[in-house]
Amino acid sequence: MPVRRGHVAPQNTFLDTIIRKFEGQSRKFIIANARVENCAVIYCNDGFCELCGYSRAEVMQRPCTCDFLHGPRTQRRAAAQIAQALLGAEERKVEIAFYRKDGSCFLCLVDVVPVKNEDGAVIMFILNFEVVMEKDMVGSPAHDTNHRGPPTSWLAPGRAKTFRLKLPALLALTARESSVRSGGAGGAGAPGAVVVDVDLTPAAPSSESLALDEVTAMDNHVAGLGPAEERRALVGPGSPPRSAPGQLPSPRAHSLNPDASGSSCSLARTRSRESCASVRRASSADDIEAMRAGVLPPPPRHASTGAMHPLRSGLLNSTSDSDLVRYRTISKIPQITLNFVDLKGDPFLASPTSDREIIAPKIKERTHNVTEKVTQVLSLGADVLPEYKLQAPRIHRWTILHYSPFKAVWDWLILLLVIYTAVFTPYSAAFLLKETEEGPPATECGYACQPLAVVDLIVDIMFIVDILINFRTTYVNANEEVVSHPGRIAVHYFKGWFLIDMVAAIPFDLLI
């Protein structure tokens, strides 16, 4: 008679799926529990143990900040960024110097990925580790590398530091407007667009060049630039800015003055950032001319202004700041037409079709709590990747769950009947059967004279019903998954307890 339990259901295979997918890609990662103190490590794979030199037993239950890997060259700011990422709910990448158990130093890129439950609360953290440099290539500990984003994938490793954006290309926007319009339909740009040429040739750093990471940081200074100062900065030398009595002219307006920039070969870094931020506020060169004239017309309804409409929906549905990093990277690809469009465009503009998908598509409701890094690593669709929660398995109709209350009560009843059979069957065979043979035949009273025979008949009927119930009862397979398919249940029961239950259900007393 089957006594099969499996009270692990309803099970959740999400954690096993993450481990299996990460292991298949030869990654070095740990999984931490966000619900406990210090976000203790609950799993670390073999790749991480080989990377740091510690065994799994030495890593388990330690804080996922990996303070046991810190050393003299470990930056405090990087460690603080990892700790801050564990307090938030967004994906974050941090470069930090770690030390192995043998004392060797290596520069590592740590990717902190939160995993949320159905309520939107962070319950786990996945920390992925990628070695960037070994100890002989690690720089000085005073050099802070965590304020910069990861290198873009479309640049060669040897040319990542030679990417320079020439400031004269930004200063000569109005001069290039006529050349853009003359391109017409034969050019790649839309009317009114501004073409910015980027020099990728390796050259020595000069005062006129600005690194790509500095251009990325310009967006942080746009908020500090007032509207009046932006307007004066875009007017140009024809209309000098008016300053109040006793007030000095704005240095932001002076930063885009061609006369002032041409007199000296070098520009201050602050002026460069502010000038680029001011130019980015204009949607095209037409807006710059309109600002000089004193009238700013409404933005025209053409394809170039609607190019950012799908980007707005993608940004609203993005799951991490990696989408913004990807957008900034692609927006700086050289030799393309940049349409400086305000994100607050007309909502009635139709979304044009684009061959290049900048932001990841909208994630469906079932995966809105899973970050983009987890979705990318697992390579699963929205119909396959579940949320991290207890999910009731989908069972067929008329199927009994093996952990249901009805099955528990039924098993206790069958257990009592088995005990009765084990006690009274030998007793009936030894004593009652002998008395029946010696006594007179009682054929007239039937079952009324033999109450134990009636009980034995009921017990046999219950055993037959138990066999039928076992054909529709779920079970737990070797992978700790609840199986509810009727065919698989029948095959599993035939290979197991079916023969024993059938022999126990045969009414031998009635056959004798």
Rank of each mutant, 00 (worst) to 15 (best):
T201K: 15
I96N: 02
G88F: 03
S182Y: 15
E134G: 14
I288V: 07
I31W: 01
A80T: 11
T65N: 07
G236H: 06
V41S: 01
F68N: 01
A34V: 08
E134L: 06
R326I: 04
Q25W: 13
R252S: 14
L380P: 01
R35V: 13
Y99H: 15
G246W: 05
P63F: 01
P114V: 01
D144C: 09
L69A: 01
F340S: 15
R292V: 07
D111E: 01
V131F: 06
S354V: 12
V377G: 04
S322Y: 08
G120L: 14
R281E: 14
S275V: 07
L324K: 13
I126D: 01
S153I: 04
G71K: 01
I31A: 01
G6A: 11
S206N: 09
P298S: 13
P205Q: 12
N128C: 09
V195N: 01
P114N: 04
K364R: 14
S209F: 04
R312N: 11
T65Q: 07
L167D: 10
R280T: 13
L343K: 05
S207W: 15
P298Q: 08
P298M: 06
M124I: 06
V110A: 01
S331K: 14
F98Y: 14
G306E: 12
L127H: 01
R62N: 05
S304D: 09
R62P: 01
R35I: 08
I363K: 07
A83T: 14
A303E: 11
D321W: 13
S104E: 14
V279E: 13
L51M: 14
G47R: 08
T17Q: 08
V377H: 04
S140H: 06
F98T: 01
R77E: 13
Q247T: 12
A40C: 11
L349H: 08
F106G: 01
I19T: 05
S263M: 04
R148G: 09
T353A: 14
R62A: 09
S272T: 09
V132W: 04
P63W: 01
F98D: 01
G53F: 01
G246Y: 14
S313Y: 12
P299I: 08
G24T: 15
E23H: 03
L296H: 08
F98Q: 01
T305K: 06
I359K: 11
E365A: 12
D286R: 05
P251N: 04
S104A: 07
